[in-house]
Each structure stands twice: as structure tokens, then as C-alpha cells.
Simulated scan of single mutants.
Amino acid sequence: MTDIPPDFDPESPEEREIAGEAATDRSDFLSLMGHSYRGELSRMSAWRTRIDRTTNWAVVVTATLLTWAFSADSRPHYILLIGMAMVMIFLWIEVRRYRVYDIWRSRLRLLEENVFANALDPDGAVQSNWRELLSEDLREPTIKISGFEATSRRLRRVYFPLISVLVGAWAVRLTVFGSFTSLVRAATVGALPGVAVLLGVGVFYGSVLLLTFWPHGRQAKGELQSEPDVEQWK
């Protein structure tokens, strides 16, 4: 451990603004950017792991409920409805994690586009004010992707297929093990009439379908996609 000089004063102007000297020294600045990149990459990887963990929970719960629901004809069909609710809770958790994860990912893309890519092929920085953008975001971190876009993206990537499987399995469960003479009677849950259950599931699935595929402007910056990204980080 380095000994601190007895006359060291962290409040002095020289010590307080010492990092500012790196702005005028290229070697110090590039070294600082390298350390910054590794730090942001570590943060992004940690949040990426959190997202994957939530996805794993949703997949395991879905598989478990499907296995249990079809293991015997006496199993209640509404266990699959409970599974839909649990998957939506996992989606809500994952959307929150995804929006935080995007903070670190967007910083990495800013460095990759304007520092590392330009070092490999000096064709000019993509954003001339990238240093100002990064400085502002370090001082006042902001979430750059809306809740609507994050929800839509996680639905398309993971949760819409899971919900579709549960809805399809629920429909099969009603028709195979339920009453063939009355689908409405088979869908009844306790005192809740079958019509209300069927209508509720229909509205729920329709809302999920709309949220998943509703066209909207892209706000997330620099993520892999099939079409060119015309949006810039604002």
C-alpha cells in the first residue's frame, strides 16, 4: 500500500482537478478509456447474468407447470393460468433489469464506435461530441430505453413464445381433459364463470400480442439487429 504524504490535501485545486490533466495527455487519456471500458464491461456482464437468470426461472417454471398439468386428467386447468401470471411477473422483473443493463451497454457502444473502431480504421468518430455525451452520462446516469420498448423486446426474444405455449397448452387442457359438450363450463374457475375466464385470457393474449408486435421507434442504441439502426443516442 502506497504511503500518503503527510502534506497531501485532497481539497487542494491541484489534487481535486488531477483527472482533468488526462484530457490534454493522449497516452493518459487512452489508458483511462481502457480502464473505463473494462469497468463498464464488467458491469454490463453482471447485469446480463441477472437477465439470463430471470429468463431461466421463467423457462423452468413453464416446463414444470406443463409437466404437472398434463400428468393426470384430474389436474386443474387453472394452474396454467397461474403460470401465465408468474411468467408476467418474471417479465416485469426482467424489463427493469434490461433497462439498467442498457445503461452500461450504451456506454460501451459509445466507446467502441468512437474510440476503438476509429483506432482500427481512422475514418472519423461517429459522434463528434462523444466525450461530452459520456461525461454527462457519467455525472448523471440516465435510462435510455423506454419501458415500452424494453417490454416489447423481451417479449419478442423470450416471453411471447413462453406465454403462447402456456395459452396453447391451456386450450388443449380444456378440450382434451375438460368437457367436450361445453368448453365454457370446462373453463370455469370456482365461482368465476367460464365466459369471464375465456374472455379474460383472450384479452390478455391479445394485449400481449399487440405489445409484442406494435411498430414503434427505436431508442436503444447500437444493439445487434437485422436492420440498420437509424436512431442515434440522444
Rank of each mutant, 00 (worst) to 15 (best):
V167A: 13
P193H: 15
A171S: 06
V195C: 05
V184R: 07
R185M: 09
R173G: 15
A169S: 15
S182T: 04
I163Q: 01
L198I: 14
P193C: 12
S182R: 15
I163T: 05
R185S: 06
G194H: 12
V195G: 07
V167I: 12
A171W: 00
V165M: 07
I163E: 02
T175N: 04
R185E: 08
V165E: 06
L174Q: 02
R185K: 15
S179D: 12
T175C: 08
L162R: 00
F177Y: 10
V195A: 13
T175A: 09
S164Y: 06
I163F: 00
V184N: 03
L198F: 08
V184A: 04
S164H: 05
G190F: 02
T175L: 07
L192Y: 02
G194P: 06
P193D: 15
S179V: 02
L174P: 01
T181I: 04
L174K: 01
L198R: 11
T175F: 01
V165H: 06
L162P: 01
L166N: 10
A186I: 03
L199K: 09
G194C: 10
V197H: 05
V172Y: 03
L183F: 14
P161M: 10
S182K: 12
G202L: 10
L198Q: 06
L192W: 03
A169T: 11
G168A: 14
I163M: 03
A191H: 11
A196H: 10
P193Y: 14
P193F: 15
V158K: 15
G202T: 01
G194L: 12
I163G: 02
L183W: 15
A187V: 02
R173D: 09
Y159N: 09
L166S: 12
F177M: 14
V197F: 05
F180W: 08
F177E: 07
F160R: 06
P161N: 12
V167H: 04
V158I: 09
G194D: 08
P193I: 08
W170K: 01
P193A: 13
G178A: 04
G178I: 02
W170C: 10
T175V: 04
A191W: 06
G202R: 06
S164F: 11
A171M: 02
V167D: 00
A196M: 09
V165R: 01
V158T: 10
R185Y: 11
R185L: 11
P161V: 08
A196Q: 13
V172C: 13
A196G: 07
L198T: 09
F160L: 05
V176E: 07
A186R: 10
V195D: 10
V172P: 13
T175Y: 01
V176Y: 05
L162K: 00
P161F: 04
L199G: 08
T181S: 14
L199I: 02
L174S: 03
G190W: 01
V176G: 13
V176Q: 06
S164E: 09
F160C: 04
G168N: 14
A196D: 09
L199C: 12
Y159R: 04
P161W: 04
Y159H: 15
L174G: 02
L174Y: 03
G168L: 10
V158D: 11
R185P: 12
L183T: 07
T188I: 11
A196T: 13
V167T: 13
V184Y: 08
I163Y: 01
R173Y: 03
V197W: 02
T175K: 00
V158E: 12
G194F: 13
T188H: 14
Y159F: 14
